[in-house]
Simulated scan of single mutants.
Amino acid sequence: MNLKPLLASGGAGVVLLALAGCVPNNPSSSDAAGAITVDSSADSCTVSADSATSGTLTFSVTNSGDQVTEFYLLGDDGLRIVGEVENVGPGISRDLVVQAQPGDYYTVCKPGMVGDGVGKAAFTVSGDRVELDGDLQAQVDQAATNYVAYVKDQVAQLVTGTDTFLDAYTSGDDATARSLYAITRANYERIEPVAESFGDLDPEIDFREADVAEGDEWTGWHRIEKDLFPPTAAENGGVEYTPLTQDQRTMYADKLRDNTQELYDAVHDPSYTVTIDAISNGAIGLLEEVASGKITGEEEIWSHTDLWDFQANLEGAKVAYEGVRDIALEKDPKLVDEIDQRFQTLQSTLATYGSLDSGFVYYNDLTTEQVKQLADQVNALSEPLSQLTATLVG
């Protein structure tokens, strides 16, 4: 996970409901202005309402502080992410669109995008459960079934790939571990919004060193990355990097293996499901991951394998989008055509730098002009893709 600012704003955040929600008949359940307003400052999170009626809710988030911020709608346990909008720069407003079923939730803002956040408050959704009728409901149900199957498959592959990678790492076979690092992570990067929906699981698996709050332990893929691709003193704040001991390698490997298994167990739980807005916002969230880290070289700062992650994020976004494409096509064929074309353009450009099978150019070998071209195409795709959720649930 990368928590740096986006190159361009726009789009709703990730929505992964552990509920069997359906597209609502009513177009909106927010206030008279059409949205619930959120003001995120340096030390508060002011939400204009603490309750709403079930259906499609729009939270219009404005950052009045001086740091990039995030806004979250959390489940009743205060950990599970029901919806999020990330990388809201100072003076910027962005919308989070969610389909909310009746229940208890929490709202919270996270200025600086680290720590526990500020202004955590209860939020209640009342009313009837929202259902659909006819063939459209069948399409929605099938899209959810297909996407859950995809997620389970990716996580199952991640478990076995991680085991192989960690076996090489803990045995001291660094050359093999380095060769497996980027390709193994692809399974995770394709479905990263799923992991983000399970509270602290994504931070423990995928936080970069810069993302870790003071006093917290840094674990996961990027802790091991730094040990496999050790920085020079100049790259490490002027301090010589100290390799991990064998016991430390084993400890971090065991932690990553356990967390990956926990993710597997979570998505294979019989109650695990997704909603149509979860799928579309997953696609949006994956493009946000590209824009906020991969395209800036800040995700894989030691290995420089950002383009492997970029490709996996793009593939995951495409799978999520295609799962709901036919439904969106009935509502806005022009939007679908635009998204199709921009996916194709971005994929074609990325393919000029390699593939997951053959490997990619390392990020630090790209020119400024090449990075700009990729960034421009990511932003060009993000703009129409950000409209997908509202089109589906509107």
Rank of each mutant, 00 (worst) to 15 (best):
E196C: 08
E196L: 14
E196A: 13
S197I: 14
F198P: 03
D200P: 10
L201M: 07
D202Y: 02
P203S: 05
E204N: 06
E204I: 04
I205E: 07
I205N: 03
D206G: 06
D206R: 01
F207A: 11
F207N: 13
R208F: 13
R208E: 12
E209T: 04
E209V: 11
A210H: 03
A210R: 06
D211I: 06
V212A: 10
A213S: 10
A213W: 08
A213D: 10
E214Y: 11
E214P: 08
G215K: 14
G215S: 12
G215T: 15
G215R: 13
G215V: 13
D216S: 09
E217P: 00
E217Y: 00
W218P: 05
W218Y: 09
T219Q: 00
T219E: 01
T219I: 02
G220N: 03
G220H: 01
W221P: 01
W221K: 02
W221S: 01
R223P: 05
R223K: 15
R223E: 12
I224H: 05
I224V: 15
E225I: 12
K226I: 12
K226N: 10
D227P: 02
L228E: 01
L228A: 07
F229A: 14
F229E: 11
F229D: 06
P231F: 14
T232P: 07
A233H: 05
A234E: 15
A234Y: 01
E235D: 14
N236E: 11
N236P: 06
G237D: 09
G237P: 03
G237R: 04
G237K: 06
G237H: 14
G238T: 08
G238K: 04
G238R: 07
V239G: 07
E240S: 09
E240A: 14
E240C: 02
P243G: 08
P243H: 09
L244Q: 09
L244H: 13
Q246V: 14
D247G: 04
D247H: 05
D247I: 14
Q248S: 05
Q248V: 03
R249G: 09
R249A: 11
R249D: 15
T250A: 14
M251G: 01
M251I: 01
M251Q: 11
A253R: 12
D254R: 04
D254T: 02
D254I: 00
K255S: 13
K255R: 13
L256C: 04
R257N: 02
N259M: 03
N259I: 02
N259E: 04
N259C: 05
T260R: 01
T260F: 01
L263G: 06
Y264M: 07
Y264D: 08
D265F: 12
D265S: 10
A266I: 00
A266K: 10
A266V: 00
A266W: 02
A266G: 00
V267H: 10
P270Y: 11
P270C: 10
S271H: 08
S271A: 15
S271C: 03
Y272H: 11
Y272V: 08
T273F: 11
T273D: 07
V274W: 04
V274L: 15
I276G: 06
A278F: 00
A278I: 00
A278E: 01
I279S: 08
S280E: 00
N281V: 03
N281G: 12
N281I: 02
G282D: 10
G282K: 01
G282Q: 05
G282A: 08
G282N: 15
G282L: 08
